[in-house]
Simulated scan of single mutants.
Amino acid sequence: MFSRILTSALFAGAAAGLIAALLQLVFVQPVLLHAELYESGELVHFGAEAVSAHPELPGMFSELTRDALSVIFTMLTYTGYALLMIALMSVAEGQGHTIDGRTGVLWGLAGFIAFHLAPGFTLAPEVPGVAAADVYARQVWWFATVGAALVALWLIAFGGNLISYVIAAVLLMAPHLIGAPEPDVFTGPVPTEIGALFAARAFGIGLVAWVLVGTFAGYFWQSEGKRVEATA
């Protein structure tokens, strides 16, 4: 069983992570590099002449070491996500639920909601140079929100009764009613348009990546199960 989980997670996480990393290099990294120009003071937003929204940025693949490390880190991250997802899939399958590539899409959507949408609803993705609250406080809130969302989604999917749905609704709402840590003042040199574009693209790529993780995880989990049965 452990070998099946590990093998499925490695294939699913590596494949989805590679695609996500390439999408980030194409769509997210240029936005981050643009924001860094304002953070460093090379570009000035307020109190200066208007500047182009399409500045001269370093070539996308000019810093090969940085890009390669980013790809490897993303693949490792999504492999970890896939490992968690497939472990939960094994539990669900043991309860009689079907796990395959098609149902994996739903698992992927649940992962996106738990790890991206739920915390990002109040604590949005941030570009460099913007005001932010204490890192430790934000991390605590983020992990608590993700944990609450995971439990809530499990109750919605497998609870099967009104009490489970009510508890799930409370868990989903509670972190946002409490509120995420906020900075004392809102300030920063980066234009809001860049921040909005970064957040939108981060959510978009996160959605694609998680759907791929779920699809691949379900597919490889089913394939590994068939292979084990065939060799038994």
Rank of each mutant, 00 (worst) to 15 (best):
F73D: 14
P125M: 07
L69V: 13
H176Q: 12
V151Y: 01
Q95L: 13
H45D: 15
G111M: 10
S8D: 04
A168S: 13
L64W: 12
M85V: 13
E193K: 10
F198I: 10
V31G: 02
I205S: 01
M89L: 13
E126P: 08
G13S: 11
A152H: 04
Y78G: 00
R66V: 13
Q29V: 02
K226Q: 14
V146S: 04
S8I: 04
S90Q: 15
A149F: 03
L32F: 04
F121H: 05
I72V: 15
E93F: 08
G214L: 02
W154Q: 09
V151K: 00
A149W: 01
I167S: 04
L6E: 05
F158D: 13
L150I: 14
I99S: 05
Y219L: 15
A232M: 11
F112T: 03
F2C: 10
V211D: 03
A196C: 00
Q29K: 03
A110L: 13
G101Y: 07
L153R: 01
A137S: 15
Q29H: 06
L18V: 02
R102H: 10
L10I: 15
G147S: 08
P30D: 01
A199S: 11
A53R: 12
S164F: 03
L6K: 05
V146I: 14
I5K: 00
L117D: 03
P191Q: 10
F203V: 12
L117G: 04
P181M: 10
L177R: 08
A202T: 14
A53D: 13
Q24N: 08
L43M: 09
G129A: 12
F73C: 08
W154P: 03
A20K: 00
V71M: 08
D67F: 02
T7L: 11
L123Y: 00
T215A: 09
G104D: 04
S62L: 12
E56N: 07
T122S: 11
S3Y: 08
V208Q: 03
V208Y: 02
T103S: 15
G129D: 03
E42G: 06
A180Y: 08
V185A: 14
L25P: 03
L76D: 11
G96V: 12
Q222G: 01
G160Q: 09
L69Y: 03
H97C: 05
F186T: 13
Y38M: 13
G108F: 01
E63L: 08
H54V: 14
A131Y: 11
V26D: 06
L23R: 00
F61L: 13
V185D: 14
W141A: 04
T65R: 06
D100W: 09
L106K: 09
T98M: 06
I178V: 15
F216C: 12
V190Y: 00
D184V: 11
L33W: 06
I163R: 12
L22I: 15
G179Q: 09
G214P: 06
F158P: 12
L22P: 03
A20C: 09
L32M: 11
G225F: 06
D67S: 14
M60N: 02
G179M: 09
W107P: 04
I156S: 05
A48F: 04
L153V: 10
F11H: 05
V170R: 04
S70G: 15
A148S: 14
P191M: 08
V127P: 01
V151I: 14
V31S: 03
A118M: 11
A157G: 12
G96I: 12
V213N: 01
S52Y: 10
G147F: 05
P189K: 04
A168W: 04
T145Q: 06
E42R: 08
L33Y: 06
R4G: 10
A118S: 14
